[in-house]
């Protein structure tokens, strides 16, 4: 079976969705069958293992932010449970 989830880098703790997933869909993550609880759109991220608030998220093998809430394996990882860790070293000025 072709999994709809792609691992971009071996160090990553999230997978990227390449085909739409319906809620309740069963797929395989690292050899285990996992039920995806919520619908996932293409390009969105799914937890590769159980994640806790504060965990760094790795994608492309690089930190892209950290969890603000816990997530189970197969859960959607996005704005509701994850935030940026990026702090610009200079002032951002809005352009009017």
């Amino acid at each position: 079976m072709i999994t709809p989830l792609i691992l971009l880098h071996p160090d990553d703790n999230v997978l990227v969705c390449r085909a739409p997933i319906a809620a309740g869909f069963e797929t395989v993550i690292d050899g285990d069958t996992v039920t995806i609880p919520a619908a996932i759109e293409v390009g969105h991220k799914v937890a590769r293992g159980d994640l806790q608030a504060g965990d760094k998220i790795l994608k492309y093998g690089a930190p892209i932010g950290s969890m603000t809430a816990d997530a189970k394996r197969g859960d959607h990882v996005h704005l509701h449970n994850m935030k940026s860790d990026y702090i610009p070293s200079h002032t951002r000025k809005a352009v009017s």
């Binding site: 969705c17 759109e41 969105h44 991220k45 994608k59 492309y60 892209i64 932010g65 996005h78 704005l79």
Partner: peptide
């Protein structure tokens, strides 16, 4: 499109 953070978006181009 599924991108959550600025650093994640940039990583896509940077990859």
């Amino acid at each position: 499109g599924g991108l959550t953070t600025q650093e994640e978006k940039s990583m896509g181009a940077y990859s």
